[in-house]
Design a protein around this nucleic acid. Structure first.
Lengths: 231, 231
DNA sequence: CGGATCATTGACTGGTGTCAACTTAGGTGG
DNA sequence: CCACCTAAGTTGACACCAGTCAATGATCCG
């Protein structure tokens, strides 16, 4: 039984706008689920039976072409909403990349609840509009940017999401990549080898450091931004 | 003064769910505007002051990188909603590619009205979710597909939007491209030359015909779908 | 320590981009 | 109505970025 009042994403998930008793109704409809790294919660092309909130861990959204080429469509962090509300088909798979915890609803239950709680629907709308903006930015990345630019954009984006509170211009930013090279390639429309070469290149130019293969240190934010075509 | 009851997109735009008197309120807030081909309604990076419905004509959404590389983010057809509701910045430009007619609202007015009319907000949510699905499909195109596949996908997509009612498997599909080669390139992440070569190639293989440079006839739907990686 | 997985590096290929010439279509004005 | 001009599209030659294939190196985990 989900005790929503103690939920780690109580204040940041789509549930944040719910009153105490509405929260109770959602709580009864929701179900806490634990996923192991690699486990897939929804499959591309399936009926959209589930939606939910990411409580903990990282998940990826992916879609593949018939011959197996994979495209990653996004990364879901804690408090992100996942799944296709108000639709019959899930157009992409959702897979845990780390062990993860999610709070799921049967889609039909969620749709009903959302229809009755305008605040939830409004919050979902704002999230969806924000994601749409984000996707459009990625379209620019995939349609127009070079390999170096793509990797630089990715690193800046990860830094922003994983270290949201670094203020000082000069402080080093250090974070752990939530995904490996293969997934980075699938996200950026590059091969694993090209991603690797770009990272090597940025390291050789002293713009970033790679203390271990999952960690990134940004030495020169300005130069990285310039690589990303924002300079 | 917009006479909404006679609006060509009365039944298909976001207004379709409004009752007669709600429609009247929207009608007073909205303003019919005529755009000449090439005229830009909203500029990337501007404050989001306007939203609206496309009444007639075709518009394109675009964003550019600092050095001028343009990416088209989508095409807006009659009854499509344009602009960024519930947000402060417009992240992309909206430009008429044909002479066009739009019905615009001050964004703040629209936001207020939408907040008060749950059906409108719900409709906007469904549209936005649909567009998000669409964008994700384009991410696959831009991230993973070859030039031939991209052009084939584009032609199939255009056929679906412009000839929605062709039933028979064998009937020829003929339509006029709403955009030129440059815009096709900007949409597909290709150069104008590559687009041209792919079209030439498809024509030489007798899969399509090009009676004039803005018209396409699809001779072999199955083969085109195969080119698009859906076969 | 040994095996599996992931990442890096190198050599080579090939698909698109780039640059430039040419063709076609459309519009304007004499 | 034709001549011209411009913009749009096509075609060709060539270069280069990123993909492919293959070998090597680093980590992790049993």
């Amino acid at each position: 039984m989900a005790t929503c009042s103690q939920c780690p994403v109580r204040e940041s998930s789509i549930c944040h706008s719910l009153s105490a008793d509405a929260l109770d109704r959602f709580g009864r409809a929701g179900r806490r689920q634990t996923l192991l790294a690699g486990q897939t919660l929804m499959w591309e092309g399936e009926d959209a039976l589930l939606v939910g909130n990411v409580v903990d861990g990282i998940l990826k959204l992916t879609a593949s072409l018939s011959d197996g080429r994979d495209q990653m469509l996004g990364i879901a962090f804690p408090s992100d909403f996942i799944g296709r509300a108000f639709g019959t088909k899930t157009r992409h798979s959702v897979t845990a990349v780390t062990d993860a915890e999610v709070c799921t609803f049967r889609r039909s239950d969620f749709d009903d609840l959302a229809r009755r709680h305008a605040d939830v629907e409004h919050d979902l709308l704002k999230r969806t509009l924000g994601e749409l903006d984000q996707m459009r930015k990625w379209m620019q990345v995939l349609g127009k940017m070079t390999a170096t630019e793509r990797v630089a954009v990715f690193l800046i984006e990860m830094a922003a999401r994983l270290c949201p509170d670094v203020e000082s211009e000069t402080a080093l930013i250090r974070f752990t990549l939530p995904i490996g090279r293969q997934d980075m390639g699938d996200l950026l429309g590059l091969t694993i080898e090209t991603v690797s070469r770009q990272i090597t290149n940025l390291r050789q130019r002293q713009i970033i450091g790679t203390p271990d293969r999952r960690s990134i240190v940004i030495y020169d934010r300005r130069a990285l931004a310039a690589c990303a075509g924002m300079g």
